[in-house]
């Protein structure tokens, strides 16, 4: 459920007056809205029921970025993030504005999701789908236009899709507590097979098939007519091709349109894990994955490192 107007205003004021925002790049992101604590401490952090979603992005900040690292603010769901982004800009233009926030350093990142989210008319792009189309091309970030974007959408469907890309498999394999999926050691390929197997059951995707499939039209060897046909062509091509690059492209295409959260939530600790509930296990795993992205090079194929490189260049190099 989205924030009401009053909560939005309060949260904006909290961000504007938060000393953390001073001289920093501020990135608004999605995440379960938690009470904004003006005096953060280990005790307040410990009391959080869940790890803030922003901690994943924070863990992804590249290793080379050592000074003036960006600050993340959780703003609720995607609609809230967008609302808060524009409300903050509006407040900045009010007379007698007093704030630590510099609008030139304000950014937002939201999930692509299946359905588009509309964006305030004052922005260059009408909705998240249009941002996606401008920002990404054939699963790579469009370097030439990336500098124009203050609101970023993920190149894959959700933040969680980045936990399930083929590059992550070695992290699971080398982990001291081998993650499990469906009572077996996690093999991401099994998840991809489940994703494609269950793709027709997603009503949301069926209803938005036209726009969703547009995102992956570069996989011209697949059939996009109907979701069923897509499923068949994906399965057939995947089983019959020996080209690993093509397989990876198909997987990423899948992760661009299939909701990944529920699959991620089926990733569980091994039976002998002594660390408590499985959510804690996934939270810890997500930090490990974040660390992986923090070491990745900022090429256009690597969405997250490229996102940070672009923000850094916009603010500190322009």
């Amino acid at each position: 459920m989205s924030l009401n107007e009053s909560d939005t205003q309060t949260h904006c004021e909290n961000i504007r007056k938060c000393a953390r925002a001073r001289n920093k790049i501020v990135i608004l992101c999605e995440g379960k809205f938690q009470h904004f604590n003006k005096n953060p401490s280990p005790q307040t952090y410990r009391k959080m029921e869940e790890m803030p979603d922003a901690n994943f992005y924070k863990a992804c900040v590249p290793k080379w970025w050592r000074q003036h690292r960006p600050e993340f603010f959780i703003c609720g769901d995607r609609k809230d993030v967008l609302n808060i982004f524009f409300t903050l800009l509006k407040l900045h233009h009010q007379p007698n504005d007093v704030s630590f926030l510099n609008p030139d350093k304000l950014f937002a990142i939201v999930d692509l999701d299946i359905q588009k989210a509309n964006i305030c008319s004052s922005y260059n792009f009408d909705d998240t789908e249009k941002i996606f189309r401008d920002l990404y091309n054939e699963l790579k970030v469009n370097q030439s236009t990336s500098f124009l974007h203050r609101i970023w959408v993920t190149g894959l469907i959700h933040k969680e899709a980045y936990f399930l890309t083929p590059d992550i498999q070695p992290i699971f394999e080398n982990h001291s507590n081998l993650p499990h999926y469906n009572n077996h050691c996690l093999r991401l390929e099994q998840i991809y097979m489940h994703m494609i197997g269950e793709i027709c059951q997603d009503i949301d995707l069926q209803n938005n098939w036209q726009s969703a499939s547009q995102r992956i039209q570069h996989c011209s060897y697949l059939n996009f007519d109907e979701i069923e046909n897509f499923k068949e062509s994906w399965n057939f091509t995947y089983q019959n091709t020996g080209d690993e690059l093509k397989k990876k492209q198909m997987i990423l295409a899948l992760l661009t349109i299939v909701k990944s959260k529920k699959y991620w939530e089926n990733v569980k600790p091994p039976d002998d894990w002594t660390g408590g509930n499985e959510r804690k296990f996934r939270e810890q795993l997500s930090l490990k994955i974040g660390e992986f992205y923090s070491c990745q090079s900022s090429t256009t194929e690597n969405h997250i490192p490229f996102f940070f490189r672009t923000l850094y260049d916009i603010v500190y190099k322009s």
């Binding site: 401490s41 280990p42 952090y45 410990r46 009391k47 810890q284």
Partner: peptide, 18 residues
């Protein structure tokens, strides 16, 4: 042993002891 919120953010809330 710490008073730092930033240190805690590098781990999960369950890691933090009080």
């Amino acid at each position: 042993a710490t008073h730092s919120f930033s240190i805690c953010e590098a781990v999960t809330p369950a890691h933090v002891k009080e």
